[in-house]
Amino acid sequence: MTVTAKPRDPLAEHGGERTGVVAKVLVRQETTLVLVVLAVGLFAWSRSSLFLSPDNLTAILRNSVIYFVMACGAALLVIGGGLDFSAGAVFTLGALSTCALLVEGVPWPLAVLAGMAACCAVGAVNFVVVTSLHVPPIIATLGTFYVLTGVDNLVTGGSDVLPLPAGFQRIAQGSVLGVPNDVLIAVAVGVLFWFLLERTRFGVNVRALGGNRQAAVANGLRVFRLDLALYVIAAATAGLAGIVYSAQVGAGQVTAGGTSTTLNAITAVLIGGVSLMGGMGGVQGVAVGAVLLSLIDNALVLTNIPPQYNSIVIGAILVCAVAVDHLRRARIYRKR
């Protein structure tokens, strides 16, 4: 699902000239990341012949769709200097509200739109709490996470929402020319976000906002509008991921989202080379990050390694990724 056009991360094109080969590799975090993906793949392949089977590779890709769709919105927000910890609960909200409408007989396109709208509303609430009440993003969205998790559970009484119409399930389970629909959705989302970030004024303004908020204000950018858009977009992709997940599994599950979902989205973003400091990173890296998460899930299952190791491996990779990000910043940007 990686986008093919030439990346335009300014660092990527200029850091290397000054700082040599090492930095050149560090600078393109995707390069390092692809190597890690290959290493994990090789490891899994050496331990299990099933790994390279088309079915298994498709499964890895379809699993990564959920991570990637969420991570796209989350990445844009982080690049713009924000952070969203409510994503896991918004994921569940999107899934449950859409499924509840479907069970009532609402046509699926309407139900999907309504579910997304509910999520966007939560994004707007995040924006208001962060900007008007001056609560730091991490706290504000964590608050939203807990409140929303409670609401998700209260409304459903803790049971799954079933059965879902076939038309809706086809969103994720069908395929076009052999490519699963959910993968196509991820590609579409990826292309859209890449375009937004790399080819539009909005994308540049988002980078400016995340890179130096004061400078963005001084240059006349409408920072509140940008903030609002970013929080709403992050919530929209979290909701969309929840909806696609429901279509994959054929049920609206109360347990679908949650803390681990939030953390997975943020992990994919950070592993993908988006800097928590804002301004830097792109969709390509996030795509590889999402595939890596899914790949690790898969490899550990195939090689009969206990699932506890999953979080150990991901934790280690996350710390390395952020350390590398810091390194490349330090190497490439002068201190003023």
Binding site: T200, V204, N205, A215, N219
Partner: peptide
């Protein structure tokens, strides 16, 4: 100075009034 370090010189010089084509493409 109000410059954005992670953007290049051209972007910084146009920030706030970035030129567009087709209405929405940078």
């Amino acid at each position: 100075l109000a410059l954005v370090e992670c953007l290049d010189i051209a972007h910084n010089m146009a920030l706030g009034t970035l030129p567009r084509k087709f209405g929405f493409v940078l």
